[in-house]
Nucleic acid binder design. Structure first.
Length: 649
RNA sequence: GCCGGCAUAGCUCAGCGGUAGAGCAACUGAUUCGUAAUCAGUAGGUCCACAGUUCGAUUCUGUGUGCCGGCACCA
């Protein structure tokens, strides 16, 4: 006699066990039509699930987010059926829903190509139109393995074998086609709807392990209705326009060419942007108790052997040799060992701690060819690196202080929000559990002091210590780790860094590796996408263009430009023989934030007509006032603060 | 590195087994014009590289390189 509590707190009684479908029907035919799946005591289950006991039930309709995820999951099943129907002999593996869509990994000798999509999509529509009900069936482990073995589905059989012993094995059929699946599912394939599209093919390793076979993955997107699908596709097109590679080319910021794969040629405008960002960061670091250093680019292999990098990362290092000498030098892949060399010069006292050594360190790493991506992942990059040498007790306060600095910098750069991942102890690690406890607790405490929350990234820490990763998202929704903070008791040990404590004895410092941007290249790539090239005035590589309407105003335009320049603005003149409409268009497309238009009127009155990027409005100001206003507006955020509010003691 | 796709003018792209075209940009000339494209003309190419098939390859095949999308990797 189940009593069913509905979301509005009303209770309905049933004579005996009842399915979700029957409950929905009892409530009303409208709900029965709309209910795709139900939440039984908070857990999503099929509508056909039989409710035996008192429970709370909520029905999920197409409007709910849960439904969207199910639509995608079911779309993956439909895709798999379509593929197996069209390409006999293809084995299925896994096919989950993901952000914005779904994918399915297939095992097949000939990988799929985008040319296969139209046939597959047509078959999917057929399956959806047919609308076969999803039917759940549970099987014993042995039966399920035998079932899939008999079908030649080796991957599925292996999946079941690797499931925990006590796990219920469930299969879902949609008409003739059956898949191993935990469920739940919509009522039938018809509920998937037609708002889906296959997007791309990709190789993917079985179980994400590069030693395994490569499968052929098909990605799709699926939505509640056509309108949502269209909106998503439109959004993708928009995102493409924000791509830093596109904008970098259009705005003439940088390029990369075959002779220097993975290394950036910064053009004047791009380098101006770089320098603006670098100067800003340097001021922030100076104000936060960092001391900047500079260390060698080429360092003898012996140091890398001592640090342990030679053994672990040798194949990712660029090695240099000269004929006269029988030695190997490595282009530094990181700055840490060099900073320790500076720490080791002379005798250090606990009084000097925490010692914060910063370097805009140019590093080289031989990244796998497939990892390279525009300027986001390159082989030569400059880290905004720093190492804080401190005591155990200082880890938490130094970390909190760092998070505060990083938050300020991200906010100034136009990223009010970012994600933090906390990577704790991995399986393979060094150091005692007590040390790990201490380091992890310090990071947690620091997050609490800084008032930030994090997602746990279990087991993903470095082998020597836990870390925080600060993640920003690019235009296409890809996440990139930018900032980082790692607790490292290991390298100081290996490279023999020590200080004299209050007790007069020698101690090992803890080393905090930390970066805010991670690499300038990556951060600038994300920055370009964040603003889609339309930078705020203080960051814009060309801040203003003075454009003339008639050539009579040429001399005055030069005066205006000179005045802007004196105020520290990066300005160009456009005296070309073109209509003002064309000039407006040209400089708008070039994302110049301020257009100062001068014609006969302005020349006669010593005024300028300012036009801001993206707005048709114009403001006519006396030259001196325009200069003062733009100068104030172009002031970097850290120089606007009236006092050193963010400085620490 | 692995799977798939792509590589033609500065850019975006057509095209074809008989050695190439458009738009924009560039350059020249005319136009002096009030807020997102003034008009006309000119010039611009080892069709990524190498090998093979062919009477003939930018086009077909193979290899290499680079790029793009994923996967793996990211000290």
């Amino acid at each position: 006699m189940p009593a069913i509590t509905l979301p509005d707190a009303s209770v309905r009684l049933f004579d005996g066990p009842v399915t979700g479908t029957a409950v929905a029907e009892a409530i009303g035919p409208g709900l029965a039509r709309a209910a795709l799946v139900m939440k039984l005591d908070g857990k999503l289950v099929d509508m056909s699930t039989v409710i035996e006991h008192d429970a709370s039930v909520a029905f999920v309709t197409r409007r709910d987010d849960d439904a969207l995820e199910m639509i995608r999951h079911d779309a993956a099943h439909v895709l798999a059926e379509a593929v197996q129907d069209l390409f006999p002999g293809t084995q299925v593996t896994i096919g989950p829903s993901i952000e914005n869509g779904f994918y399915y990994d297939f095992a097949r000798n000939d990988p799929f190509t985008p040319e296969d999509f139209s046939a597959i999509e047509a078959k999917m529509r057929e399956i959806i139109t047919r609308g076969a009900k999803f039917v759940r069936q549970e099987m014993s482990r042995e039966d399920a393995i035998a079932f899939f073995q008999a079908k030649g589905e080796k991957y599925k059989a292996q999946l079941i074998e690797d499931l925990p012993r006590d796990q219920t094995i469930s299969l879902y059929s949609q008409g003739e086609w059956v898949d191993l699946c935990r469920g739940p599912h919509l009522r039938s394939t018809a509920d998937v709807g037609m708002a889906f599209k296959l997007m791309k093919v990709a190789g993917a390793y079985w179980r994400g392990d590069h030693r395994n076979a490569m499968l052929s993955r098909i990605y799709g997107t699926a939505w509640r209705d056509q309108k949502e699908l269209d909106a998503y596709l439109h959004q993708l097109e928009e995102a493409e326009r924000r791509d830093h590679r596109r904008i970098g080319k259009d705005m003439g910021l940088f390029h990369i060419q075959e002779e220097a794969v993975g290394s950036v040629f910064w053009h004047p405008k791009g380098w101006k942007l770089y320098r603006t960002v670098e100067a800003y960061l340097r001021r922030r670091l100076d104000a936060n108790g960092y001391q900047e250093v500079r260390t060698p680019q080429l360092v003898d292999r012996s140091l890398w052997e001592k640090s342990g990098h030679w053994d672990n990362y040798r194949q990712h290092m660029f090695i240099a040799q000269v004929e006269e000498e029988d030695k190997f030098l490595a282009l530094k892949p990181m700055n840490c060992p060099c900073h320790i060399q500076i720490f080791r010069q002379g005798m250090r006292s606990y009084r000097e701690l925490p010692l914060r050594l910063a370097e805009m360190g140019c590093c080289h790493r031989y990244e796998p060819s497939g990892a390279l991506h525009g300027i986001m992942r390159v082989r030569q990059f400059t880290q905004d690196d720093a190492h804080i040498f401190c005591t155990d007790e200082q880890i938490a306060s130094e970390t909190a202080r760092f998070i505060s600095l990083l938050s300020q910098v991200y906010s100034d750069m136009g990223f009010p929000t970012f994600r933090i991942k906390f990577s704790d102890r991995p399986q393979a690690r060094i150091g005692s559990d007590a040390d790990w406890d201490k380091a992890e607790a310090a990071l947690r405490e620091a997050c609490q002091i800084a008032g930030v929350t994090f997602e746990l990234n279990p087991g993903e820490g470095a082998f020597y210590g836990p870390k925080l990763e600060f993640v920003l998202r690019d235009a296409i929704g890809r996440d990139w780790q930018c900032g980082t903070l790692q607790v490292d008791p290991n390298l100081p040990e290996r490279l023999d860094a020590e200080y004299v404590g209050e007790d007069g004895a020698r101690h090992r410092p803890i080393m905090l590796h930390r970066a805010i941007f991670g690499s300038f290249e990556r951060f600038l790539g994300i920055l370009i996408e964040q603003y889609a090239g339309r930078f705020p005035l203080w960051l814009a590589p060309v801040q203003a263009v003075v454009a003339t309407i008639v050539s009579d105003a040429d001399a005055y335009a030069e005066d205006v430009a000179a005045a802007f320049r004196r105020a520290g603005l990066e300005v160009r003149t456009d005296l070309s023989n073109q209509k003002i409409n064309a000039k407006v268009r040209e400089h708008s497309l070039a994302h110049v934030p301020v257009l100062a238009v001068v014609g006969r009127n302005e020349a006669a009155n010593r005024t300028v007509a300012l036009r801001r990027l993206g707005s048709p409005a114009q403001e006519i100001l006396p030259l001196a006032e325009a200069v003062a206003r733009l100068k104030a507006e172009a002031t970097p955020p850290d120089l606007r603060e009236s006092t050193g509010a963010t400085e620490f003691a």
